[in-house]
């Protein structure tokens, strides 16, 4: 039985010098291939000039807190990764 390729979060800096922005995720066996895949998947329309990839498992994300949550997130649920999670620009390189 095959083991699934790990998941990576992809961040791209566009032509205009803004910070790297989260654009999505993908599967790849390692970081080098994740970068190649990111180029092929997420820059098909010349979207970027620089690519970062981060293993999804390595992302530490804040708990949802906007407007004061009434309830704790259900810790029993295993969410595998924060795909498409917009990390604010001022958090910087994660």
């Amino acid at each position: 039985m095959s083991s699934e390729w790990p998941l990576w979060e992809v961040f791209i800096r566009g032509q205009h010098g803004l910070n790297h922005r989260h654009v999505g995720s993908l599967h790849a066996p390692d970081a080098e291939m994740a970068i190649k895949h990111a180029r092929d998947v997420y820059t098909r329309r010349n979207e970027g000039v620089s690519i970062w990839v981060v293993p999804s498992a390595a992302i530490a994300a804040s708990s949802p807190s906007d407007k004061g949550p009434l309830f704790e997130p259900a810790n029993s649920k295993v969410y595998r990764h924060p795909t498409f999670y917009d990390i604010p620009d001022d958090v910087g390189h994660m």
């Binding site: 390729w5 599967h27 790849a28 190649k36 895949h37 092929d40 098909r44």
Partner: peptide, 10 residues
């Protein structure tokens, strides 16, 4: 695999 499908098309 999907990623490879996309890369090959490029």
């Amino acid at each position: 695999v999907l990623e490879e499908d996309i890369a090959l098309a490029n």
